[in-house]
Nucleic acid binder design. Structure first.
Lengths: 201, 201
DNA sequence: ATTTTTGCGTTACGAGTGCAACGTAAAAGG
DNA sequence: CCTTTTACGTTGCACTCGTAACGCAAAAAT
């Protein structure tokens, strides 16, 4: 055999090339040849590692979700309180730097692309479901059984995830500055988890 | 001249064909030939009404935003109070029936597609900005100068729009049922505009 | 040293693309 | 009636696409 190559690493490199193209030139510019060129190889090499374009696409989506998951768990590790953890998790999902903007664009593209492709849609769905349940648990802990905001923890969690999703989309589209999005997120976190809640009734 | 045709109407028909394709088969299935076939004509006819594919795409985006705007203003007309109006506006944006699901998918596709296409991105941006400002004004009216939730009306409005955007995306992706999304929206509206706010301090 | 396996490039093919050019039937204007 | 204009359809071109087939060098296995 030749130079013994790490299969997983090569696949990851190609997935990264795909993400760069999707983020910079749009999803329709993603082709085997372009991905190869972006990675400095030929389309034949891409074919060697992915049996079809669909397989390449699926793998890229998995990479991007794994990356987001890794950043999220890293952020959790640094948090001291539940509220800090929730905030760290949510801000880890916002496109606040170039790397996350690229990932955000890729995820957005996949959201549209997954129409009529159940396997891809399922990956995205599981992601949302997991986050929803995680936040619901954390919110329930903070609320400690009391529910003075007129909603269930799961509803609050669903709203929080949706809020961040929407803020992310708007920041990506440069509808407003990321500082505004962060301020809005903080205000809503304060509303849900802050002291003011204990003063309400 | 031949059968004297309403130019605007034909363009609208083609835009609708485009939307149907984009919603059912995905954005990459949108081609001049497919749009023509969906509308029951040839690609040459499409070329007759749109000088380029880009022009067709831009027009379709305008159509979809105009349609959403029309539904929004119609919903406002039926509202009796500010809160009802806000709720009507927001639910008019959620993909709660097939027509709105189609539009939602098209908008989502355009969000991704508009990467690197400033004219398209600007249309989406203006939409968000307008809604943000509108809701900020309405919230300010309801709050009547008092601000007990620890955020500005514009921030509350931004959060509301982002929340609905996120809920819409999740419902489109079938991450959860639309009833859940509606319940979450109502809970948040209650939080922002309901009586409980007057009881908080 | 020879065989086998692997990594990767090259080439080719059919299909689909946007677009330009041309053809033509029909209706309005003279 | 005849010309002009409009509304299409048709054809063709240059290009890109995904995929399959083949080629070949290099390294491990024997």
């Amino acid at each position: 055999m030749p130079k013994r190559v790490d299969h997983a690493e090569r696949r990851a490199q190609l997935a990264e090339a795909l993400m760069r193209i999707a983020a910079e030139r749009g999803f329709e510019a993603v082709s085997l040849r372009h991905v190869g060129a972006e990675a400095g190889v030929t389309s034949g090499m891409v074919q060697h590692y992915f049996r079809s374009k669909d397989e390449l696409m699926s793998f890229a989506l998995e990479v991007v979700t794994e990356r987001a998951h890794a950043r999220a768990t890293a952020a959790v590790g640094e948090a001291g309180s539940v509220r800090e953890e929730v905030r760290a998790l949510l801000t880890a999902l916002l496109p606040l730097d170039e790397a996350r903007r690229v990932e955000g664009r890729v995820v957005l593209a996949f959201m549209s692309y997954s129409t009529g492709r159940p396997e891809l849609a399922e990956v995205l769905r599981q992601n949302t479901v997991a986050m929803r349940e995680h936040f619901a648990g954390q919110i329930a802990r903070v609320w400690a059984g009391e529910n003075r905001l007129g909603m269930e923890p799961l509803q609050a969690a669903t709203g929080l995830v949706a809020l961040v999703e929407g803020l992310g989309v708007h920041v990506l589209g440069e509808h407003y500055a990321q500082e505004e999005a962060l301020a809005v997120l903080d205000a809503h976190l304060e509303l849900l988890l802050g002291q003011s809640m204990r003063r309400s009734g």
